[in-house]
């Protein structure tokens, strides 16, 4: 079965460029605004959408994404509403992959089998679950992959050569290289750090490689997309959205959140598209 993620990477490889993976939080600052943003993402230049599932205790996220999750939860976002967003998006778009990113408890709470079938039915293509390392594959990874969803694994700078085989086992879609130790929105890894790390990964997998954590500017995104196969940008996008909000977490009067955020996504996309792969 060919899925949207594989198709997208094949298509981009043919175009000779890397992908822009754009992250934002489902339901931030409210369902309506977030859904409008989701629908506008592909045209702004997002090749793959990573949709955050809010969680009260996001232990790998920096302040920007923590706050986004809190805003979404305060506005009443639930897993059901996140699935509804994806379903609504799919009515107008059948090609842009959507990957859900978050933490395990809201999935476990819903029941793994139920969640997988709901995700599939809604039109989700894959997932990145921060707190499920390879050691816990039996929990969600294996049943998800069996159901045709991609389980995208995080590989970290601390992942040893010996451990890579374990980590890459059962993974699909693409490999997400966490370019620095730390939380989202931290420092940016230099090309001199990225090059050897990506070379090490290439030796172990044929899957596309995405680089994330600390990618902030169009220049960072261009650099990572050229060295790897995709750049993941999250914190900058979420921070741009937060700038549009007043103290009450509502969009400031006269500010069009979708327009502001997609303007940034377009700049990032221009960077990625300008960085031709050799």
């Amino acid at each position: 079965m060919t899925n949207r993620i594989d198709t997208k990477f094949e298509q981009l490889a043919a175009e000779g460029r890397g992908a822009l993976v754009a992250y934002f939080m489902a339901g931030d600052p409210d369902l309506e605004t977030s859904l409008a943003l989701l629908k506008a993402m592909p045209e702004a230049g997002a090749d793959i959408i990573e949709l955050g599932m809010p969680f009260t205790d996001p232990m790998a996220d920096g302040p920007a994404i923590q706050k986004a999750g809190n805003r979404a939860l305060r506005a009443g976002q639930t897993m059901q509403k996140t699935f509804d967003m994806v379903r609504s998006f799919r009515q107008g778009n059948d090609t842009t992959p959507i990957v859900l990113m978050g933490y395990y408890n809201p999935i476990y709470s819903r029941g793994v089998e139920t969640w997988i079938s709901e995700a599939r039915a809604a039109g989700v293509d894959g997932m990145i679950i921060v707190d499920l390392p390879a050691e816990e594959d039996a929990e969600l990874c294996i049943p998800a992959v069996e159901a045709g969803l991609a389980f995208i694994r995080l590989v970290a700078p601390t992942t040893s050569e010996a451990r890579l085989a374990t980590v890459l086992n059962n993974t699909s879609g693409f490999v997400y290289y966490v370019s620095v130790t730390g939380i989202t929105g931290g420092r940016t890894a230099g090309e001199d750090e990225l090059k050897p790390a990506l070379a090490r990964l290439r030796a172990h997998t044929d899957l596309p490689l995405a680089v994330g954590f600390g990618i902030k500017t169009p220049k960072d995104a261009a650099s990572a997309a050229r060295l790897a196969d995709a750049s993941v940008v999250g914190t900058s996008i979420v921070a741009r959205l937060a700038e549009c909000l007043g103290k009450d977490d509502r969009p400031k009067p006269g500010v069009d959140v979708t327009k502001e955020v997609t303007a940034l996504v377009a700049e990032l996309a221009a960077g990625v598209r300008g960085a031709r792969k050799s």
């Binding site: 790998a60 921060v130 707190d131 816990e136 992942t159 730390g182």
Partner: peptide
């Protein structure tokens, strides 16, 4: 060996921490 007491326990951490 997986750090479980029945179904409880385990190692639900980010990959960055797993080697640690």
């Amino acid at each position: 060996e997986e750090g479980r007491f029945g179904i409880f326990g385990g190692r639900f951490v980010a990959e960055t921490l797993m080697p640690l």
